[in-house]
Design a protein around this nucleic acid. Structure first.
Lengths: 106, 106
DNA sequence: CGGAATCCCATACGATACTG
DNA sequence: CAGTATCGTATGGGATTCCG
């Protein structure tokens, strides 16, 4: 947990905050949770101000955190690549959704 | 919302992500939600690796987002200052808690 | 006690251009 | 199509010192 000092507190580990707190991470997770399987292009075009480098970094971080899986049918460059939430990612989405919706209304 | 492009998505505004995504913001909110009113010192000592400058910045950002209220009984420097969640902050805490607990177990 | 001031570094992010 | 390469800026955030 991020608080390991004087007071107890139910907050999550800093490492996960770093992942979830990345500027586009929540957006990618909600996009995948809402739409299911998506490819790089549509994700990028839904996040108009993200540069490809940043989006790649975000996806890699989510992959490393086992929240997202990357699937390339053929190992050829330029071949379609799909992204999906893992079971863990879907669980996160489930817990994230009420928060996201509240934030939208607030 | 952060996604305003091709695909629809229930994700929250980027501005709020920037606040909530700050390294220590979730911790401060959960601390205040869990314990109620707290002063600067105890918060700082519960987040062992936060510098006073950073904690101040975090608190100011939360204040600006109307999630936290700062109360100084006397306008004297050095007098005790209290921090509390606003109603809005408590609502956030309510939505945050399940997520935080899931993150802890994951 | 509750900060403010300063310094400094790491990194996050955007823009742009290029590639298999 | 799905990235990678490069560059530059902004900001985040830790450490430290000082102050009323």
């Amino acid at each position: 947990m991020c608080c390991d000092g004087e007071l107890e507190c139910p907050c999550p580990p800093v490492g996960l905050i770093d992942v979830v707190g990345k500027k586009w991470a929540m957006c990618v997770v909600t996009l995948l949770g809402y739409h299911g399987t998506l490819r790089f292009g549509p994700i990028q075009r839904s996040l108009p101000r993200v540069s490809p480098a940043t989006l790649t970094a975000t996806l890699r971080a989510l992959e490393k955190a086992k929240l997202v899986v990357r699937t390339a049918k053929e190992p050829v460059r330029g071949a379609p690549v799909s992204y999906d939430l893992t079971a863990r990612g879907k669980a996160l989405y489930g817990n994230l959704l009420p928060l996201a919706e509240w934030l939208r209304s607030a």
